[in-house]
């Protein structure tokens, strides 16, 4: 006789701009050793949405060499062009218009406008200006921002399809530094809230999901692990575990319970 399978399979897609995704882990494609490692890590992560940067081509050099999109065909992944490296709204808008042309009219983008080259902290004023311009132009904007709930609310009000606050600084791996602000943003938002930046290891990703985040976007935590492909698999499990724990609903915290898990009666004496 087969053992009954009591595992719960949740029908719990991540919906962004009307499209459903099975994976709640979004990954970047930077900092890998080579394209083979990039692809292997992304496969192990189970991610369906992967970010790409837009940069000038090297003129006259290595025209025949493979490109990132040979390894990550747009037919298999939802490519999320980002504006990393942009410090003004104008540059961010220009970059994403180029991305839309590059990707045959693709509308879903990640907006990120930085304010400081050392910390990579976002410039939220430029971010809002860029978001408004992009949305007017028909883009679906997933927006990287600080963990300020008021700014998050404004970005939602102008029409962003996902709010993506930092958990700590980009590339820092410092984890979730202000869970309470994230919680405020999650509670007030009607669009998905994803942690973008700051995750260092699997437990950070699980904590983000247990807080109620709709997903997590990460790059360095996987690419800069000693074994990126192994870490990618760990992150996949952490995201799933954190999501299931959030939906399951954790037990209340209490200092002590005086309620052991084993029966109090029937002890041998």
């Amino acid at each position: 006789m087969n053992a009954p399978n009591n595992s719960v399979v949740l029908d719990d897609p991540l919906v962004i701009a009307g499209r459903a995704y099975r994976s709640r882990l979004l990954v970047g494609t930077g900092k890998y050793k080579d394209f083979d490692e990039t692809r292997a890590a992304i496969d192990a992560s189970g991610a369906e949405i992967v970010t790409v940067a837009i940069r000038r081509t090297n003129i006259g050099q290595n025209a025949g060499e493979p490109s990132l999109l040979d390894y990550l065909p747009p037919s298999q992944f939802t490519l999320l062009p980002n504006t990393a490296g942009c410090y003004t709204a104008d540059d961010a808008v220009r970059t994403l218009k180029l991305a839309r042309e590059l990707l045959d009219g693709h509308k879903l983008v990640k907006l990120e406008v930085l304010g400081d080259p050392n910390t990579l902290y976002p410039n939220v004023r430029e971010t809002i200006v860029a978001a408004e311009a992009l949305i007017r132009d028909g883009f679906d904007v997933m927006v990287y921002t600080s963990d300020d709930p008021i700014i998050a609310r404004e970005l939602e009000a102008v029409g962003c399809v996902a709010i993506m606050p930092l958990a700590s600084l980009i590339g820092s791996g410092m984890g979730i530094l202000n869970p309470w602000n994230l919680k405020l943003i999650i509670e007030q938002s009607k669009v998905p809230v994803l942690v973008d930046a700051g995750v260092g290891t699997a437990s950070d990703a699980a904590v983000a999901m247990e807080l109620g985040c709709a997903g997590v976007l990460m790059n360095t935590a996987i690419a800069s692990a000693q074994r990126p492909v192994l870490m990618a698999g760990a992150m996949k499990k952490a995201i799933e575990a954190g999501r299931e724990a959030y939906i399951a609903g954790r037990m209340p915290r209490r200092l002590y319970a005086a309620s052991p898990s084993s029966p109090g009666r029937g002890l041998i004496s």
């Binding site: 970047g28 940069r55 590059l102 990707l103």
Partner: peptide, 10 residues
């Protein structure tokens, strides 16, 4: 003239 392509990035 700017000529751009997609590259690895976060």
């Amino acid at each position: 003239i700017e000529v751009v392509a997609a590259v690895g990035g976060g």
